[in-house]
Every structure is written in structure tokens, then in C-alpha cells.
Simulated scan of single mutants.
Amino acid sequence: MPASDRRLLASIHDVSPRFAGQVDRLADRLAHHLGGPRFAMLVVPDHWGEAPIAHDRAFHARLRDWHAAGIELFVHGWFHRDDSRHAGAAAGFKARHMTAGEGEFLGLGEDEALDRMRRGRALIEDIVGAGVAGFVAPAWLYGPGAIAALGTAGFAIAEDHLRVWSPVDGRVLTRGPVVTWASRSRGRIASSIAFAALARHALAPMRTVRVAVHPGDTGVPRLLDSIDAAFARLLCGRTPGRYRDLLTG
């Protein structure tokens, strides 16, 4: 398969005024690997209720500059914090073990999920004067209410840990695990480095591979080394792509 048909999709999560410095460092690192700003940013409108974008004019300018440079902007929840009470063992397990209280859309009902999706979209689109690329739930976790809301919200693209799909018509656009890292404990640092080492070889034959980084990664040199190794390996015979390529490919 020629390199033009093989893609690497990269993204920076948790883009917020709260992590402005870390996001800048990640953007520089990814641009170095990808030959420019050929990645997506997942924007949180008010991270944990402590970093609202709405009245931050300096951050508005940054979003406009990123968009003008060709970076795809996704809505990434509203608060990125999970305040829901979860019913059922499966949802409770995901909330406790798959994220540190950040699965915002795991327990939301359809109406509340749709309201946050729409408000996040309106905020970002009003700032940049253009449409967002899609929606990605914090921690890639969706409950039934969020899935139902996606069908109404009209986002072109959504993704979780194992796939990218179009909520408009339900098409699965690509499958495969996203390569990402965790920085919140020694155990998770070690396990994410081990998974990335395996994935950068095991996923090499796939047509489309996704890599996602987070602001917390910048504080752990071992994670940065692993991120660099993943990009170096996965870009062999592969072209940096954009999520919107999946809609036409």
C-alpha cells in the first residue's frame, strides 16, 4: 500500500487556557514530527469549571491562529469532569478505573449531553468563525445518553478508544486502538509506555493509526521519549493526515 493511502492521525487533548504552556510544547513537538501543524486539537470550553474560554480574548486569538494554520478543532466535552452518579457495574467500573474522574459524558442523560455538545460547538465556532471538525468525549467515554445525543447534534466525526465514526450516518470510518499515554501514576506511566512500545510495531501494518497526547505528558521525560519513538516508527511509510480525510477516503 503506498504511503499516500496510509495515514497517521495525531491529536492534542485537553486544549484549554489551563494548560496553555503544555499545549504549546506539545504542538511544537508534533509539528516537528509531522512537518507542520498537521494534527487536531480537542478543546475544553471550561476545564473543571476553572478555566472558561468564553471571555478569554487572548485564548480566542490562539484558537483562531490554530484554525488558520489548518489545525482541526474538536469539541472535547464542556467541563471534562465527571459529576454524574453512575448506575450499573459497567459504568461504575469505567468511571473509577478508566479515568481520574474525567469521563464527563459517561453518565449524562441525552438532554444534558446534547446541551453541552451544542454549547461547546457554538462557543468554538463563534470564536473561529468556522465549523468544528467533530466531537470527542473526555476520556473517550460515552454513555447511552451521549450516544443518543450525538445522533441529534450533527457532528461529522466522533471517536472513542477503538474507532472513529460519523454520527450523521453511523459509518465507521476507521478501527483500531488509539496510542496514548497516562501520566497520573507510576503504574500508569509504565503501562502506557509498555503499550506504546507494543503498539508502534503491532499497528504498523494498519492503514490508519491514531496517536493522542495530553498536557500531563510534558512533565514526564520518559513519556516524551516514548511519544517520540512512536511517531518515528509509525510515520515510516505513512503520511500525516487529518480526520476529515476519513470522510472522503
Rank of each mutant, 00 (worst) to 15 (best):
M1L: 14
M1N: 15
P2V: 06
R7D: 12
L8N: 11
D14I: 01
V15W: 01
S16L: 02
P17W: 12
A20W: 13
A20C: 10
A20N: 07
V23G: 07
A27P: 05
A27Q: 04
R29M: 14
H33V: 13
L34W: 05
L34I: 08
G35H: 05
P37M: 12
M41N: 08
L42D: 07
V44H: 00
G49H: 00
E50W: 12
A51C: 03
A51H: 04
H55V: 15
L63M: 06
R64K: 08
D65P: 09
W66I: 11
E72G: 02
F74W: 01
G77W: 00
F79K: 15
D83E: 15
S84A: 10
R85V: 14
A87L: 14
A89C: 08
A89E: 09
G92T: 05
K94D: 05
A95H: 07
H97W: 06
T99Y: 10
T99V: 15
A100N: 14
G101D: 09
G103T: 03
G109C: 08
E110L: 05
E110A: 09
A113T: 01
D115Q: 15
D115S: 15
R116E: 07
R118A: 14
R119D: 07
R121F: 10
L123W: 07
E125F: 08
D126S: 15
I127G: 13
V128Q: 06
G129C: 09
A130F: 03
G134P: 08
A137N: 04
P138D: 03
A139M: 06
L141D: 00
P144G: 07
A146D: 02
A148W: 01
A148E: 05
G151R: 00
F155Q: 04
A158R: 01
E159S: 14
H161S: 14
D169T: 10
G170D: 01
R175L: 13
R175Y: 10
G176A: 09
P177K: 12
V179G: 03
V179T: 13
S183F: 15
S183M: 13
S185C: 09
S185Y: 12
R186Q: 12
R186Y: 10
R188V: 13
I189V: 06
S192I: 06
I193R: 00
A196T: 00
R200F: 03
H201E: 09
A202T: 01
L203W: 01
V211A: 05
V213I: 09
H214G: 05
G216R: 10
D225Y: 09
A230R: 01
L234G: 05
C236R: 15
G237M: 08
R238P: 01
T239D: 03
R242A: 10
Y243S: 10
D245Q: 03
D245G: 05
L246G: 00
L246P: 03
T248Q: 08
G249T: 11
